[in-house]
Design a protein around this nucleic acid. Sequence first.
DNA 1: AAATATTTTTAGCCTAACCTAAAAATAAAA
DNA 2: TTTTATTTTTAGGTTAGGCTAAAAATATTT
Lengths: 222, 222
Amino acid sequence: MNTVPTTSAEENYLKAIFKIAEKEPGAVLTNALAAEMGTSAASATDMLKRLSEKQLVVYEKYRGVTLSETGNRIATDLIRKHRLWEVFLVDKLGFAWDEVHEFAEQLEHIQGENLAERLDDFLGHPRFDPHGDPIPDAQGHWLRRAQVRLSTLTPGQRGIVTGVDDHSSTFLQYLNELSLGLGAELELLERTAYDQSTKIRIRTRESVLSEKVCQNLFVRII
Amino acid sequence: MNTVPTTSAEENYLKAIFKIAEKEPGAVLTNALAAEMGTSAASATDMLKRLSEKQLVVYEKYRGVTLSETGNRIATDLIRKHRLWEVFLVDKLGFAWDEVHEFAEQLEHIQGENLAERLDDFLGHPRFDPHGDPIPDAQGHWLRRAQVRLSTLTPGQRGIVTGVDDHSSTFLQYLNELSLGLGAELELLERTAYDQSTKIRIRTRESVLSEKVCQNLFVRII
DNA sequence: AAATATTTTTAGCCTAACCTAAAAATAAAA
DNA sequence: TTTTATTTTTAGGTTAGGCTAAAAATATTT
């Protein structure tokens, strides 16, 4: 399957490049990559040379980096495995959605024939992970979904929570307290012009969300 | 839980020391350890110094090494995780017993709060892995079982396959061909004095096993 | 007990993945 | 277009975990 053997460190860099390029299309700059990896620019440059030699990225000095076909495939497989494992941890082992990221960061690097496919079968081919992020299929194809940020809704509109942009456990735990997990149905009651804070209703309960929360919550309008 | 942070490499050495000491009680010698790890004696010495500094082993130059209390606990936890993951791979993902070792070698190093316990719950607290090896409990306690090598049975005796001593996939696959998986019931029909080869019956099928096979198969006499 | 063989350790080197500090390239401002 | 600021790369160093070859310790023969 994988044409080139890769280390976990290399894989993490590929994933980081993928992630940055996803939000900000075009070449990924060294500093952005270093920041994403929590490392120094010098270390990132170092790794980019290695990845470039292995043909996993296309790297031009001072100009940034993009994933090669192979690099893109490896990154996609990693994300697939990461999200499948998250489904496993939540659906089968009973962890909460804010507890699984670190485990999945490790599990995604487990190598071996057919593991992802067997896991996918076992889990019933889930198409989204516990945070609402899409899981690419075995061919690396993505599903795009009709969802918008809660911040784009206007008073009177209703929506169902489909995902989060911020995956931090503090944010996820805050959502738990608000009963704003995946699938929660809400109605936007009013938005304050001053700071864009937003009053919503979930079942019978009303809550006020900051602009930041609304920007990090994805909903499907109903 | 773990008092000392450990790398995968360190953990593998601890496991190797445990494994050797299990068969050959007493201090483990550098060469034996290096052989088990598939590395050089120099590298083993190197690692023993590191492990000794971390107080995971008691190491005396030229005299061999034993696990400290902590080291023993880490090794036991690793074996527990290894075997639990093997159960998962076979029972839940549908892998064959000869396919799971390499996966489990990786999975056993996954770190994190409660993972083993949740997995154990999910699997229904299995006490033996797919090869019949006992799984220590969360406190690190082992279950010992009344089993003997098939080579110790005499004609007329019957037994149920409970485990293997050789875990190689070639051996396991050979057992598959003979329908000699865990739980198989057999009767010893006759043993040739010349080379100790043994004729057995499984259901209606008769097979002849070499001495080597009989020495690597554990059975419970019935 | 001395000589020889074996085992273990030390010494010195390598690579991956990090680091800091300095140099070089590019971008922005004057 | 210089000068200044920012970004990126290079240079040189560290650590973990390997290696080989040589030295030292232990064990075995003679």
